[in-house]
Computed example of a mutant assay.
Amino acid sequence: MENYVIAPRVLRNAVQMAALTGGALLGLVCVLMAIPIAAAVKAVLSATRTASGSPSS
């Protein structure tokens, strides 16, 4: 019970909002960068498969 009710309330009061804002911003940046990074990885893997002679899917 303590880990689900008391600890979150104590931590919520102890942690300032400014500290959480940086984490939320970093999370948003990572989400926005995930698609271009995934596309680049896919392109590199496709080029590698083509160069090695195996068929790409």
Score class of each variant (00 low, 15 high):
residue 1 M to E: 08
residue 3 N to V: 02
residue 3 N to H: 11
residue 3 N to F: 13
residue 4 Y to N: 10
residue 5 V to W: 14
residue 5 V to R: 13
residue 6 I to W: 13
residue 7 A to Q: 13
residue 7 A to W: 14
residue 7 A to Y: 14
residue 8 P to Q: 04
residue 8 P to V: 02
residue 8 P to K: 02
residue 9 R to Q: 10
residue 9 R to P: 02
residue 9 R to K: 11
residue 9 R to T: 00
residue 9 R to L: 12
residue 10 V to K: 12
residue 10 V to S: 04
residue 10 V to G: 01
residue 11 L to R: 10
residue 11 L to K: 10
residue 12 R to T: 00
residue 13 N to M: 06
residue 13 N to W: 05
residue 13 N to L: 05
residue 14 A to V: 03
residue 14 A to N: 03
residue 14 A to P: 02
residue 15 V to D: 02
residue 15 V to K: 05
residue 16 Q to V: 04
residue 16 Q to K: 15
residue 16 Q to T: 11
residue 16 Q to S: 14
residue 16 Q to Y: 03
residue 17 M to V: 13
residue 18 A to K: 15
residue 18 A to R: 15
residue 18 A to T: 12
residue 19 A to M: 12
residue 20 L to N: 03
residue 20 L to A: 08
residue 20 L to S: 02
residue 22 G to H: 01
residue 22 G to W: 02
residue 22 G to Q: 04
residue 23 G to Y: 06
residue 23 G to V: 05
residue 23 G to H: 04
residue 24 A to Y: 08
residue 24 A to L: 13
residue 25 L to S: 08
residue 25 L to C: 05
residue 26 L to N: 03
residue 26 L to M: 11
residue 26 L to A: 11
residue 27 G to S: 06
residue 27 G to H: 01
residue 27 G to P: 01
residue 28 L to A: 12
residue 28 L to W: 03
residue 28 L to K: 06
residue 28 L to V: 09
residue 29 V to I: 14
residue 30 C to W: 05
residue 30 C to P: 01
residue 30 C to Y: 03
residue 30 C to L: 13
residue 31 V to T: 09
residue 31 V to Q: 07
residue 32 L to H: 00
residue 32 L to A: 12
residue 32 L to F: 07
residue 32 L to W: 08
residue 33 M to A: 13
residue 33 M to G: 01
residue 33 M to R: 11
residue 33 M to T: 00
residue 33 M to H: 02
residue 34 A to E: 00
residue 34 A to L: 11
residue 34 A to F: 06
residue 34 A to G: 00
residue 34 A to N: 02
residue 34 A to Y: 01
residue 35 I to D: 00
residue 35 I to G: 00
residue 36 P to E: 08
residue 37 I to L: 14
residue 38 A to T: 00
residue 39 A to E: 09
residue 40 A to V: 07
residue 42 K to N: 07
residue 42 K to Q: 09
residue 42 K to V: 00
residue 43 A to Y: 11
residue 43 A to Q: 14
residue 44 V to L: 14
residue 44 V to Y: 11
residue 44 V to D: 06
residue 44 V to G: 05
residue 44 V to N: 08
residue 45 L to D: 00
residue 45 L to S: 06
residue 45 L to Q: 10
residue 46 S to F: 07
residue 46 S to Y: 08
residue 46 S to M: 11
residue 46 S to A: 12
residue 48 T to W: 07
residue 49 R to N: 06
residue 49 R to T: 01
residue 50 T to D: 08
residue 50 T to K: 15
residue 51 A to L: 14
residue 51 A to K: 15
residue 51 A to S: 11
residue 52 S to M: 14
residue 52 S to Y: 09
residue 52 S to H: 08
residue 52 S to Q: 12
residue 53 G to D: 09
residue 53 G to K: 10
residue 55 P to K: 15
residue 55 P to A: 15
residue 56 S to A: 15
residue 57 S to I: 11
residue 57 S to L: 14
